[in-house]
Design a protein around this nucleic acid. Sequence first.
DNA 1: AAAAATTTTTAGATTTACCTAAAAATAAAA
DNA 2: TTTTATTTTTAGGTAAATCTAAAAATTTTT
Lengths: 220, 220
Amino acid sequence: MQSYTEENYLKTIYHLAEKTINVQTNAIAEQMQTKPASVTDMIKKLADKGLVDYIKYQGVTLTETGKNTAIDIVRKHRLWEVFLVDKLNFKWDEVHDVAEELEHIKSIELIERLDEFLGFPKADPHGDPIPDKNGRFAKTQFIKLIELTIGDQGTITGVTQHSSAFLKHLEKLGLTLGKKIQISDVTDFDGSVEILLSDKQVNISREVAKHILISSNGKN
Amino acid sequence: MQSYTEENYLKTIYHLAEKTINVQTNAIAEQMQTKPASVTDMIKKLADKGLVDYIKYQGVTLTETGKNTAIDIVRKHRLWEVFLVDKLNFKWDEVHDVAEELEHIKSIELIERLDEFLGFPKADPHGDPIPDKNGRFAKTQFIKLIELTIGDQGTITGVTQHSSAFLKHLEKLGLTLGKKIQISDVTDFDGSVEILLSDKQVNISREVAKHILISSNGKN
DNA sequence: AAAAATTTTTAGATTTACCTAAAAATAAAA
DNA sequence: TTTTATTTTTAGGTAAATCTAAAAATTTTT
């Protein structure tokens, strides 16, 4: 059984490990809004519990057990987000903080039943995949919108930026999950992308395009 | 903003205050499964925060602020219980522990929306009243089943005992919320009560009868 | 490869919520 | 009204998670 805090460390390490193999102390500290010294303390504790492998000055990796625990927290977080949006009518930019608390409620039965109540969703309101109760993710293949070229079409199926500002911006442009789009132009000057969205033209910056995930249907 | 633990103390004091005016240190300790010395520490802290009035050796009472905070936690607890039973199909004897955790999630918006999603319920699965967002309880008038006499009829609307054993027992006898009953006999020997429950005869002990609340329709 | 910069760890404190053991206050019994 | 019993508080200590400041290891630069 892990404490609330230990769970948050595991989750943070899990997410950081998606980008680098060995997760560094400073990276964890920044992500968790704490100091490196505190991270070192906690890492030792997690290592003692067999949840991470740790070599001094070399950063950490999750053990099998640690990874499973982390995935379970991610599962809870994303299921609660679906609940908040689908059942309680929260907007996709409003759910993160509450889910951050709900993810620590520790009843297996609760999550099983919630999963069923929600119809076993495969993705959360931002398109992030929800692992099943065995920790397995459904295979999905996304392309970043920025990688598409003129004429390509597809469906918006996720975002890689979860800030409220970004999500509100997309909402205002009408770029929400499930919308079908086609690339009509890419500006040479600033790399901004012109999108055809149900007969409406929308222009998005290169920065925005980087953070939208598309399930591609290939060329028109 | 109160800690998880402070909230639990306030809730416990609130419930104990339903029976006695001044709540004693030992009573709190027993209820919270902790030691009297720890209770004294916490009481001082709550007094400093203006949540309880405290005179050494004389026990505590909640201040207005303390009481409002406690009622808010009770509201959350009971709304989550309704959610668990109505939406996730938990049994009424399975919900307490999970609600005990959920009640500490601290988003006002969440509770407002949950309340609405559940159709603004007035009572939880055990018949306990749910205060509205202003902390007001709907007026209800219950009679303990034990106080009824032969011929009296009414509807089961609550219980004053929440143990899983008790609730499972009632369930097995068919004595669940909303059921209409009539007293057909009261045994002199042991005070046990004979009940007519939709043409079925059920006998319950005096001890059980004490903990069932009836909204009475008066004599037949 | 030595110097400088960065990252990480150690050492020693702090805060919260708890504990035990002993002292003090209050209540009950003789 | 003493004595006894009970309740409550104080004093001093522990564990978890944090902190700051300084030391140690690693990496980068010159």
